[in-house]
């Protein structure tokens, strides 16, 4: 069993209204960042877990996302990185 650190991004599903993202977009426009299009605010989780290899660590975190960390109705997730500790 090796220890891995898996980071995952959870973001509101595209097409659903994201009021946090919209508020941040408006604030950035107010600051003069006219080039900003859409901003989406999600969550970034870092999970330390034991697994036999990188693939197993990633598969395990995918299951965690499906069962708890992301809401399957409204959120999408992506594994942002897996590193060996």
């Amino acid at each position: 069993m090796t220890r891995f650190r898996v980071s995952v991004h959870i973001i509101p599903r595209r097409g659903l209204l994201d009021p946090q993202g919209k508020a941040v977009t408006d604030a950035l426009h107010t600051l003069g960042f006219a080039g900003v299009g859409e901003v989406h605010v999600g969550r970034h989780l870092v999970i330390e877990t034991g697994a036999k290899d990188i693939a197993a660590a990633e598969a395990s975190v995918r299951t965690m996302c499906e069962r708890l960390l992301a809401n399957p109705v409204t959120e999408d997730f992506e594994i942002a990185g897996v590193v060996k500790e």
Partner: peptide, 9 residues
């Protein structure tokens, strides 16, 4: 369904 953050806080 699901309950998301209000559109206006």
């Amino acid at each position: 369904g699901a309950l998301l953050r209000n559109d206006a806080g």
